[in-house]
Design a protein around this nucleic acid. Structure first.
Length: 450
DNA sequence: CGAATTTGACCGGCGC
DNA sequence: GCGCCGGTCAAATTCG
Protein backbone atom coordinates (compact mmCIF):
# COMPACT_ATOMS: atom_id res chain seq x y z
CA UNK A 1 0.00 0.00 0.00
CA UNK A 2 1.19 3.46 -0.81
CA UNK A 3 0.37 6.19 1.60
CA UNK A 4 -0.92 9.12 -0.40
CA UNK A 5 -0.95 11.34 2.64
CA UNK A 6 -4.71 11.63 2.96
CA UNK A 7 -6.42 10.67 6.19
CA UNK A 8 -9.09 7.95 6.36
CA UNK A 9 -11.67 10.59 7.20
CA UNK A 10 -10.88 12.53 4.05
CA UNK A 11 -11.12 9.38 1.99
CA UNK A 12 -14.47 8.63 3.49
CA UNK A 13 -15.76 12.09 2.71
CA UNK A 14 -14.41 11.87 -0.80
CA UNK A 15 -16.05 8.48 -1.33
CA UNK A 16 -19.35 9.81 -0.04
CA UNK A 17 -19.12 12.75 -2.38
CA UNK A 18 -18.45 10.44 -5.26
CA UNK A 19 -21.44 8.31 -4.36
CA UNK A 20 -23.62 11.39 -4.24
CA UNK A 21 -22.31 12.52 -7.60
CA UNK A 22 -22.82 9.10 -9.08
CA UNK A 23 -26.37 9.00 -7.80
CA UNK A 24 -27.03 12.38 -9.31
CA UNK A 25 -25.52 11.16 -12.55
CA UNK A 26 -27.68 8.03 -12.51
CA UNK A 27 -30.76 10.13 -11.94
CA UNK A 28 -29.80 12.40 -14.78
CA UNK A 29 -29.25 9.46 -17.12
CA UNK A 30 -32.56 7.98 -16.03
CA UNK A 31 -34.29 11.23 -16.87
CA UNK A 32 -32.56 11.34 -20.22
CA UNK A 33 -33.57 7.76 -20.90
CA UNK A 34 -37.14 8.59 -20.07
CA UNK A 35 -37.09 11.60 -22.37
CA UNK A 36 -35.54 9.58 -25.16
CA UNK A 37 -38.13 6.88 -24.73
CA UNK A 38 -40.88 9.43 -25.01
CA UNK A 39 -39.26 10.92 -28.07
CA UNK A 40 -38.90 7.52 -29.66
CA UNK A 41 -42.50 6.71 -28.95
CA UNK A 42 -43.57 10.00 -30.46
CA UNK A 43 -41.42 9.54 -33.56
CA UNK A 44 -42.66 5.98 -34.05
CA UNK A 45 -46.24 7.15 -33.79
CA UNK A 46 -45.69 9.97 -36.25
CA UNK A 47 -43.94 7.64 -38.62
CA UNK A 48 -46.78 5.16 -38.59
CA UNK A 49 -49.30 7.85 -39.25
CA UNK A 50 -47.30 9.30 -42.10
CA UNK A 51 -46.68 5.88 -43.53
CA UNK A 52 -50.37 5.10 -43.70
CA UNK A 53 -51.09 8.50 -45.18
CA UNK A 54 -48.40 8.15 -47.80
CA UNK A 55 -49.52 4.67 -48.76
CA UNK A 56 -53.04 5.92 -49.21
CA UNK A 57 -51.91 8.77 -51.42
CA UNK A 58 -49.72 6.47 -53.51
CA UNK A 59 -52.54 3.98 -53.90
CA UNK A 60 -54.90 6.66 -55.09
CA UNK A 61 -52.33 7.88 -57.56
CA UNK A 62 -51.67 4.40 -58.85
CA UNK A 63 -55.35 3.64 -59.21
CA UNK A 64 -55.73 6.61 -61.50
CA UNK A 65 -52.82 5.44 -63.64
CA UNK A 66 -54.10 1.90 -63.60
CA UNK A 67 -57.47 2.93 -64.92
CA UNK A 68 -55.93 4.53 -67.97
CA UNK A 69 -53.61 1.62 -68.53
CA UNK A 70 -56.39 -0.87 -68.06
CA UNK A 71 -58.20 0.49 -71.07
CA UNK A 72 -55.11 0.01 -73.18
CA UNK A 73 -54.52 -3.43 -71.76
CA UNK A 74 -58.01 -4.69 -72.55
CA UNK A 75 -57.65 -3.49 -76.11
CA UNK A 76 -54.29 -5.23 -76.55
CA UNK A 77 -55.58 -8.40 -75.03
CA UNK A 78 -58.52 -8.59 -77.36
CA UNK A 79 -56.26 -8.12 -80.35
CA UNK A 80 -53.91 -10.85 -79.19
CA UNK A 81 -56.71 -13.29 -78.51
CA UNK A 82 -58.19 -12.71 -81.93
CA UNK A 83 -54.91 -13.63 -83.54
CA UNK A 84 -54.67 -16.78 -81.49
CA UNK A 85 -58.18 -17.84 -82.36
CA UNK A 86 -57.33 -17.57 -86.03
CA UNK A 87 -54.11 -19.51 -86.18
CA UNK A 88 -52.99 -21.12 -83.00
CA UNK A 89 -53.28 -24.80 -82.29
CA UNK A 90 -55.99 -26.17 -80.04
CA UNK A 91 -53.46 -27.20 -77.47
CA UNK A 92 -52.19 -23.70 -76.96
CA UNK A 93 -55.70 -22.35 -76.78
CA UNK A 94 -56.60 -24.88 -74.14
CA UNK A 95 -53.59 -23.89 -72.08
CA UNK A 96 -54.53 -20.27 -72.36
CA UNK A 97 -58.06 -20.93 -71.19
CA UNK A 98 -56.73 -22.78 -68.20
CA UNK A 99 -54.30 -20.03 -67.42
CA UNK A 100 -56.76 -17.26 -67.90
CA UNK A 101 -59.15 -18.96 -65.60
CA UNK A 102 -56.74 -18.46 -62.78
CA UNK A 103 -56.87 -14.73 -62.99
CA UNK A 104 -60.17 -13.25 -61.95
CA UNK A 105 -61.15 -10.36 -64.14
CA UNK A 106 -62.36 -8.54 -61.11
CA UNK A 107 -58.95 -8.45 -59.57
CA UNK A 108 -58.09 -4.84 -60.02
CA UNK A 109 -54.56 -5.24 -58.88
CA UNK A 110 -54.02 -7.89 -61.50
CA UNK A 111 -55.32 -5.67 -64.20
CA UNK A 112 -53.10 -2.93 -63.01
CA UNK A 113 -50.00 -5.07 -62.96
CA UNK A 114 -50.76 -6.76 -66.19
CA UNK A 115 -51.43 -3.56 -67.98
CA UNK A 116 -48.20 -2.26 -66.62
CA UNK A 117 -46.29 -5.16 -67.98
CA UNK A 118 -47.99 -4.76 -71.30
CA UNK A 119 -46.94 -1.20 -71.37
CA UNK A 120 -43.42 -2.38 -70.92
CA UNK A 121 -43.78 -4.59 -73.88
CA UNK A 122 -45.11 -1.86 -75.99
CA UNK A 123 -41.69 -0.39 -76.18
CA UNK A 124 -39.83 -3.47 -77.22
CA UNK A 125 -41.07 -4.26 -80.65
CA UNK A 126 -43.07 -2.63 -83.32
CA UNK A 127 -43.41 -5.58 -85.60
CA UNK A 128 -46.64 -7.54 -85.41
CA UNK A 129 -46.20 -10.78 -83.47
CA UNK A 130 -46.74 -14.15 -85.02
CA UNK A 131 -49.41 -16.45 -83.69
CA UNK A 132 -46.97 -18.55 -81.72
CA UNK A 133 -45.28 -15.46 -80.42
CA UNK A 134 -48.58 -14.10 -79.28
CA UNK A 135 -49.46 -17.37 -77.65
CA UNK A 136 -46.21 -17.71 -75.76
CA UNK A 137 -46.25 -14.08 -74.87
CA UNK A 138 -49.71 -14.30 -73.42
CA UNK A 139 -48.77 -17.40 -71.54
CA UNK A 140 -45.69 -15.78 -70.09
CA UNK A 141 -47.75 -12.84 -69.05
CA UNK A 142 -50.23 -15.05 -67.32
CA UNK A 143 -47.51 -16.92 -65.48
CA UNK A 144 -45.83 -13.75 -64.41
CA UNK A 145 -49.17 -12.36 -63.44
CA UNK A 146 -50.04 -15.28 -61.25
CA UNK A 147 -46.75 -14.91 -59.47
CA UNK A 148 -47.28 -11.21 -59.14
CA UNK A 149 -50.67 -11.85 -57.63
CA UNK A 150 -49.20 -14.29 -55.14
CA UNK A 151 -46.70 -11.69 -54.09
CA UNK A 152 -49.20 -8.91 -53.92
CA UNK A 153 -51.20 -11.03 -51.55
CA UNK A 154 -48.17 -11.86 -49.55
CA UNK A 155 -48.23 -8.95 -47.18
CA UNK A 156 -51.80 -9.51 -46.17
CA UNK A 157 -53.15 -12.85 -47.20
CA UNK A 158 -51.19 -15.95 -47.70
CA UNK A 159 -54.02 -18.20 -46.58
CA UNK A 160 -54.60 -19.34 -50.12
CA UNK A 161 -51.08 -20.57 -50.28
CA UNK A 162 -51.48 -22.32 -46.99
CA UNK A 163 -54.58 -24.46 -46.82
CA UNK A 164 -53.07 -27.68 -47.90
CA UNK A 165 -53.88 -29.70 -44.88
CA UNK A 166 -55.30 -28.41 -41.65
CA UNK A 167 -53.37 -30.91 -39.63
CA UNK A 168 -50.00 -30.48 -41.20
CA UNK A 169 -47.79 -27.57 -41.91
CA UNK A 170 -47.97 -27.12 -45.65
CA UNK A 171 -44.92 -28.28 -47.47
CA UNK A 172 -43.50 -27.45 -50.80
CA UNK A 173 -44.70 -30.06 -53.22
CA UNK A 174 -42.76 -30.10 -56.46
CA UNK A 175 -45.09 -32.63 -58.02
CA UNK A 176 -47.70 -29.94 -58.57
CA UNK A 177 -48.05 -29.10 -62.20
CA UNK A 178 -50.43 -26.20 -62.05
CA UNK A 179 -48.81 -22.88 -62.92
CA UNK A 180 -50.30 -21.15 -59.95
CA UNK A 181 -49.08 -23.89 -57.70
CA UNK A 182 -45.64 -23.64 -59.16
CA UNK A 183 -45.60 -19.92 -58.65
CA UNK A 184 -46.86 -20.49 -55.15
CA UNK A 185 -44.16 -23.01 -54.45
CA UNK A 186 -41.50 -20.78 -55.90
CA UNK A 187 -42.83 -17.90 -53.90
CA UNK A 188 -42.50 -20.01 -50.82
CA UNK A 189 -38.87 -20.56 -51.69
CA UNK A 190 -37.86 -17.02 -52.52
CA UNK A 191 -35.44 -15.82 -49.88
CA UNK A 192 -33.68 -12.78 -48.60
CA UNK A 193 -30.43 -13.35 -46.83
CA UNK A 194 -28.75 -10.77 -44.61
CA UNK A 195 -25.15 -10.87 -43.51
CA UNK A 196 -24.33 -8.58 -40.62
CA UNK A 197 -21.79 -8.41 -37.85
CA UNK A 198 -23.51 -9.08 -34.59
CA UNK A 199 -22.73 -10.70 -31.28
CA UNK A 200 -26.40 -11.29 -30.63
CA UNK A 201 -28.06 -14.57 -31.52
CA UNK A 202 -30.51 -12.78 -33.81
CA UNK A 203 -30.89 -9.41 -35.43
CA UNK A 204 -33.87 -7.41 -34.24
CA UNK A 205 -36.39 -7.21 -37.04
CA UNK A 206 -39.56 -6.29 -35.23
CA UNK A 207 -41.20 -9.68 -35.47
CA UNK A 208 -41.76 -12.41 -32.91
CA UNK A 209 -40.09 -15.70 -33.68
CA UNK A 210 -40.26 -19.16 -32.28
CA UNK A 211 -37.44 -21.59 -32.71
CA UNK A 212 -38.54 -24.91 -34.13
CA UNK A 213 -35.32 -26.58 -35.01
CA UNK A 214 -31.57 -26.53 -35.07
CA UNK A 215 -29.24 -28.44 -37.32
CA UNK A 216 -25.61 -28.72 -38.04
CA UNK A 217 -25.12 -27.72 -41.64
CA UNK A 218 -22.40 -29.23 -43.74
CA UNK A 219 -19.28 -27.12 -44.03
CA UNK A 220 -20.06 -24.97 -41.03
CA UNK A 221 -19.18 -25.82 -37.44
CA UNK A 222 -21.85 -23.42 -36.22
CA UNK A 223 -25.39 -24.79 -35.97
CA UNK A 224 -28.17 -23.35 -38.06
CA UNK A 225 -31.30 -22.35 -36.14
CA UNK A 226 -34.77 -22.39 -37.66
CA UNK A 227 -37.43 -19.92 -36.58
CA UNK A 228 -41.02 -19.27 -37.61
CA UNK A 229 -43.04 -16.13 -37.14
CA UNK A 230 -45.42 -16.29 -34.17
CA UNK A 231 -47.05 -12.91 -34.53
CA UNK A 232 -50.15 -14.53 -35.99
CA UNK A 233 -51.47 -18.05 -36.26
CA UNK A 234 -50.81 -19.48 -39.67
CA UNK A 235 -48.09 -17.04 -40.63
CA UNK A 236 -45.73 -19.00 -42.84
CA UNK A 237 -42.72 -16.74 -42.62
CA UNK A 238 -39.59 -18.52 -41.53
CA UNK A 239 -36.04 -17.58 -41.01
CA UNK A 240 -32.74 -19.33 -40.59
CA UNK A 241 -29.96 -17.94 -38.46
CA UNK A 242 -26.40 -19.11 -38.71
CA UNK A 243 -22.95 -17.77 -38.06
CA UNK A 244 -20.56 -17.54 -40.96
CA UNK A 245 -18.00 -20.33 -40.99
CA UNK A 246 -15.12 -18.04 -42.02
CA UNK A 247 -15.94 -15.20 -39.69
CA UNK A 248 -18.08 -16.08 -36.73
CA UNK A 249 -18.78 -12.49 -35.92
CA UNK A 250 -20.95 -12.44 -39.01
CA UNK A 251 -24.54 -13.46 -38.49
CA UNK A 252 -26.39 -14.75 -41.51
CA UNK A 253 -30.16 -14.43 -41.38
CA UNK A 254 -32.27 -15.83 -44.19
CA UNK A 255 -35.93 -14.89 -44.50
CA UNK A 256 -38.50 -16.85 -46.43
CA UNK A 257 -42.18 -16.19 -47.06
CA UNK A 258 -44.58 -13.34 -46.45
CA UNK A 259 -46.48 -12.33 -43.35
CA UNK A 260 -50.24 -12.81 -43.38
CA UNK A 261 -50.90 -10.28 -40.66
CA UNK A 262 -50.38 -6.61 -39.86
CA UNK A 263 -46.89 -5.70 -38.80
CA UNK A 264 -45.45 -3.05 -36.52
CA UNK A 265 -43.55 -0.31 -38.36
CA UNK A 266 -40.19 -1.80 -37.48
CA UNK A 267 -41.17 -5.12 -38.96
CA UNK A 268 -42.77 -3.53 -41.99
CA UNK A 269 -39.43 -2.65 -43.48
CA UNK A 270 -38.12 -6.17 -43.35
CA UNK A 271 -41.37 -7.67 -44.54
CA UNK A 272 -41.50 -5.29 -47.44
CA UNK A 273 -37.93 -6.10 -48.22
CA UNK A 274 -38.51 -9.83 -48.36
CA UNK A 275 -41.65 -9.34 -50.34
CA UNK A 276 -39.90 -7.03 -52.78
CA UNK A 277 -37.01 -9.40 -53.09
CA UNK A 278 -39.27 -12.31 -53.79
CA UNK A 279 -41.15 -10.23 -56.28
CA UNK A 280 -38.02 -9.22 -58.11
CA UNK A 281 -36.56 -12.68 -58.19
CA UNK A 282 -39.73 -14.35 -59.28
CA UNK A 283 -40.32 -11.80 -61.95
CA UNK A 284 -36.87 -12.64 -63.13
CA UNK A 285 -37.70 -16.29 -63.16
CA UNK A 286 -40.57 -15.91 -65.50
CA UNK A 287 -38.51 -16.32 -68.61
CA UNK A 288 -39.65 -13.04 -70.05
CA UNK A 289 -37.04 -10.93 -71.70
CA UNK A 290 -38.86 -7.74 -70.96
CA UNK A 291 -36.40 -6.71 -68.32
CA UNK A 292 -33.63 -6.30 -70.79
CA UNK A 293 -35.76 -5.60 -73.77
CA UNK A 294 -37.53 -2.70 -72.27
CA UNK A 295 -35.37 0.35 -72.83
CA UNK A 296 -37.42 2.35 -70.43
CA UNK A 297 -36.78 0.15 -67.48
CA UNK A 298 -33.39 1.44 -66.53
CA UNK A 299 -34.37 4.96 -67.27
CA UNK A 300 -37.37 4.54 -65.03
CA UNK A 301 -35.39 3.30 -62.12
CA UNK A 302 -34.81 6.42 -60.22
CA UNK A 303 -31.30 6.08 -59.02
CA UNK A 304 -28.86 4.02 -60.98
CA UNK A 305 -26.45 3.96 -58.11
CA UNK A 306 -26.12 0.48 -56.85
CA UNK A 307 -25.50 -1.47 -59.98
CA UNK A 308 -21.80 -1.33 -59.30
CA UNK A 309 -22.25 -3.25 -56.10
CA UNK A 310 -24.96 -5.62 -57.09
CA UNK A 311 -24.40 -8.86 -58.82
CA UNK A 312 -26.83 -11.28 -60.27
CA UNK A 313 -26.18 -14.93 -60.54
CA UNK A 314 -28.21 -17.58 -62.18
CA UNK A 315 -29.24 -21.12 -61.53
CA UNK A 316 -30.32 -22.64 -58.22
CA UNK A 317 -32.88 -24.22 -55.90
CA UNK A 318 -34.12 -21.03 -54.24
CA UNK A 319 -34.02 -17.57 -55.71
CA UNK A 320 -32.22 -15.52 -53.11
CA UNK A 321 -31.17 -11.96 -52.53
CA UNK A 322 -28.10 -11.69 -50.36
CA UNK A 323 -27.34 -8.47 -48.55
CA UNK A 324 -23.86 -7.98 -47.24
CA UNK A 325 -23.54 -5.51 -44.39
CA UNK A 326 -20.22 -6.77 -43.23
CA UNK A 327 -17.62 -5.04 -45.34
CA UNK A 328 -15.96 -1.76 -44.75
CA UNK A 329 -18.11 0.72 -46.62
CA UNK A 330 -15.05 2.75 -47.55
CA UNK A 331 -13.55 -0.25 -49.23
CA UNK A 332 -16.48 -0.69 -51.54
CA UNK A 333 -16.80 1.33 -54.67
CA UNK A 334 -18.40 4.54 -53.62
CA UNK A 335 -21.61 5.30 -55.39
CA UNK A 336 -21.94 8.69 -56.97
CA UNK A 337 -23.15 11.46 -54.73
CA UNK A 338 -26.79 12.38 -54.56
CA UNK A 339 -27.86 8.80 -54.72
CA UNK A 340 -30.10 6.89 -52.40
CA UNK A 341 -27.10 4.97 -51.25
CA UNK A 342 -25.43 8.05 -49.95
CA UNK A 343 -28.65 9.38 -48.51
CA UNK A 344 -29.02 6.30 -46.42
CA UNK A 345 -25.68 6.77 -44.85
CA UNK A 346 -27.63 8.92 -42.49
CA UNK A 347 -29.71 6.34 -40.65
CA UNK A 348 -32.00 8.94 -39.22
CA UNK A 349 -33.36 9.49 -42.71
CA UNK A 350 -34.01 5.86 -43.36
CA UNK A 351 -37.34 5.47 -41.70
CA UNK A 352 -38.73 8.62 -43.13
CA UNK A 353 -37.86 7.59 -46.67
CA UNK A 354 -38.68 3.93 -46.48
CA UNK A 355 -42.40 3.92 -47.15
CA UNK A 356 -42.07 6.04 -50.24
CA UNK A 357 -39.18 4.01 -51.51
CA UNK A 358 -40.85 0.70 -50.91
CA UNK A 359 -43.94 1.83 -52.64
CA UNK A 360 -41.99 3.22 -55.55
CA UNK A 361 -39.91 0.10 -55.77
CA UNK A 362 -42.87 -2.20 -55.75
CA UNK A 363 -44.59 0.00 -58.26
CA UNK A 364 -41.59 -0.05 -60.55
CA UNK A 365 -41.41 -3.78 -60.25
CA UNK A 366 -45.04 -4.22 -61.06
CA UNK A 367 -44.16 -2.67 -64.37
CA UNK A 368 -41.17 -4.87 -64.68
CA UNK A 369 -42.46 -8.13 -65.90
CA UNK A 370 -39.27 -10.02 -66.28
CA UNK A 371 -35.66 -10.16 -65.36
CA UNK A 372 -33.41 -11.95 -67.72
CA UNK A 373 -31.01 -14.17 -65.91
CA UNK A 374 -27.96 -15.19 -67.79
CA UNK A 375 -25.73 -18.03 -66.81
CA UNK A 376 -22.02 -17.62 -66.56
CA UNK A 377 -20.30 -20.83 -65.73
CA UNK A 378 -16.69 -21.56 -65.28
CA UNK A 379 -16.31 -24.65 -67.36
CA UNK A 380 -12.98 -25.41 -65.75
CA UNK A 381 -14.76 -26.20 -62.54
CA UNK A 382 -16.67 -29.34 -61.84
CA UNK A 383 -20.31 -29.08 -60.88
CA UNK A 384 -19.46 -29.48 -57.23
CA UNK A 385 -16.95 -26.69 -57.40
CA UNK A 386 -19.14 -24.24 -59.11
CA UNK A 387 -20.10 -22.21 -56.13
CA UNK A 388 -22.36 -19.22 -56.41
CA UNK A 389 -19.42 -16.97 -57.00
CA UNK A 390 -18.54 -18.92 -60.08
CA UNK A 391 -22.02 -18.20 -61.30
CA UNK A 392 -21.95 -14.57 -60.46
CA UNK A 393 -22.02 -12.13 -63.24
CA UNK A 394 -21.97 -8.42 -62.88
CA UNK A 395 -25.37 -7.38 -63.94
CA UNK A 396 -25.05 -3.68 -64.26
CA UNK A 397 -27.94 -3.64 -66.63
CA UNK A 398 -30.16 -5.27 -64.10
CA UNK A 399 -28.51 -5.02 -60.73
CA UNK A 400 -31.97 -5.89 -59.76
CA UNK A 401 -33.72 -2.62 -59.47
CA UNK A 402 -31.15 -0.15 -58.15
CA UNK A 403 -33.91 1.47 -56.27
CA UNK A 404 -34.76 -1.86 -54.80
CA UNK A 405 -31.26 -2.55 -53.61
CA UNK A 406 -31.06 0.83 -51.99
CA UNK A 407 -34.33 0.22 -50.25
CA UNK A 408 -33.10 -3.06 -48.92
CA UNK A 409 -29.93 -1.41 -47.77
CA UNK A 410 -31.91 1.17 -45.92
CA UNK A 411 -34.27 -1.34 -44.43
CA UNK A 412 -31.60 -3.57 -43.07
CA UNK A 413 -29.45 -0.74 -41.87
CA UNK A 414 -32.30 0.73 -39.94
CA UNK A 415 -33.22 -2.69 -38.68
CA UNK A 416 -29.96 -3.48 -37.00
CA UNK A 417 -29.02 0.07 -36.23
CA UNK A 418 -26.03 -0.21 -38.48
CA UNK A 419 -24.97 3.05 -39.99
CA UNK A 420 -22.97 1.27 -42.65
CA UNK A 421 -24.52 1.27 -46.04
CA UNK A 422 -25.07 -2.08 -47.64
CA UNK A 423 -22.01 -2.65 -49.70
CA UNK A 424 -22.89 -5.80 -51.47
CA UNK A 425 -26.18 -7.10 -52.69
CA UNK A 426 -26.36 -10.31 -54.54
CA UNK A 427 -29.30 -11.94 -56.12
CA UNK A 428 -28.49 -15.52 -56.35
CA UNK A 429 -30.19 -18.55 -57.70
CA UNK A 430 -27.32 -20.91 -58.04
CA UNK A 431 -28.04 -24.58 -58.41
CA UNK A 432 -24.59 -25.54 -57.43
CA UNK A 433 -24.24 -27.72 -54.42
CA UNK A 434 -20.94 -26.15 -53.66
CA UNK A 435 -19.87 -24.54 -50.48
CA UNK A 436 -22.55 -22.21 -49.34
CA UNK A 437 -20.47 -20.47 -46.78
CA UNK A 438 -18.92 -17.18 -47.67
CA UNK A 439 -20.26 -14.14 -49.36
CA UNK A 440 -23.11 -15.77 -51.19
CA UNK A 441 -24.40 -18.15 -48.65
CA UNK A 442 -27.64 -19.11 -50.17
CA UNK A 443 -27.88 -21.04 -53.31
CA UNK A 444 -30.89 -22.44 -54.89
CA UNK A 445 -33.03 -22.97 -57.85
CA UNK A 446 -36.32 -24.27 -59.04
CA UNK A 447 -36.66 -21.35 -61.34
CA UNK A 448 -37.46 -22.25 -64.88
CA UNK A 449 -34.58 -20.99 -66.86
CA UNK A 450 -34.29 -20.20 -70.50
C1' DC B 1 -48.45 -24.48 -15.51
C1' DG B 2 -48.18 -22.71 -19.98
C1' DA B 3 -44.86 -21.15 -23.25
C1' DA B 4 -40.57 -21.61 -25.35
C1' DT B 5 -36.59 -24.29 -26.48
C1' DT B 6 -34.00 -28.48 -27.35
C1' DT B 7 -33.04 -32.45 -29.83
C1' DG B 8 -33.54 -36.92 -32.03
C1' DA B 9 -36.50 -38.80 -35.52
C1' DC B 10 -38.49 -38.45 -39.76
C1' DC B 11 -39.30 -36.96 -44.59
C1' DG B 12 -38.29 -35.65 -49.25
C1' DG B 13 -34.99 -34.14 -52.75
C1' DC B 14 -30.92 -35.08 -55.03
C1' DG B 15 -26.62 -37.15 -56.62
C1' DC B 16 -24.17 -41.29 -57.38
C1' DG C 1 -31.68 -48.16 -54.62
C1' DC C 2 -28.86 -46.05 -51.30
C1' DG C 3 -26.87 -42.54 -48.69
C1' DC C 4 -26.36 -37.69 -47.78
C1' DC C 5 -28.33 -33.48 -46.59
C1' DG C 6 -31.58 -29.75 -45.52
C1' DG C 7 -35.74 -28.92 -43.42
C1' DT C 8 -39.50 -30.00 -40.24
C1' DC C 9 -41.96 -32.41 -36.58
C1' DA C 10 -42.99 -33.42 -32.01
C1' DA C 11 -41.89 -35.34 -27.49
C1' DA C 12 -39.05 -34.08 -23.78
C1' DT C 13 -37.10 -30.58 -21.24
C1' DT C 14 -36.36 -26.00 -19.51
C1' DC C 15 -37.84 -21.48 -18.38
C1' DG C 16 -40.56 -17.65 -16.50
Amino acid sequence: MVDDGSSPATDDTRAKNEIVMLRAEIERVDRENQELKEMLSHVTKSYSTMQVHLMTLMEESQKKDAHAQQQLHVKHRQEDKQQIEVGTSRLVQKQLVVDLGLVPASDIHDQQSLSSSENNEDGRSNSPPTNSEVASRLQMEEEAEITRREISMGMGREEEAVHVSPNKVPRFNPSKTNNADQAEATMRKARVSVRARSEATMITDGCQWRKYGQKMAKGNPCPRAYYRCTMAAGCTVRKQVQRCAEDRTILITTYEGNHNHPLPPAAMAMASTTSSAAHMLLSGSMSSTDGLMNPNFLARTLLPCSSNMATISASAPFPTVTLDLTQDPNAATQPPPNTIQSQFQNPSQNLALLPQLFTQTLYNQSMFSGLQMSQHRDSSLGPKQQGPLADSVTAAAIAADPNFTAVIAAAISSMIGNSHPINNITTNSSNSNGNNSGANIVSSSGIPEN
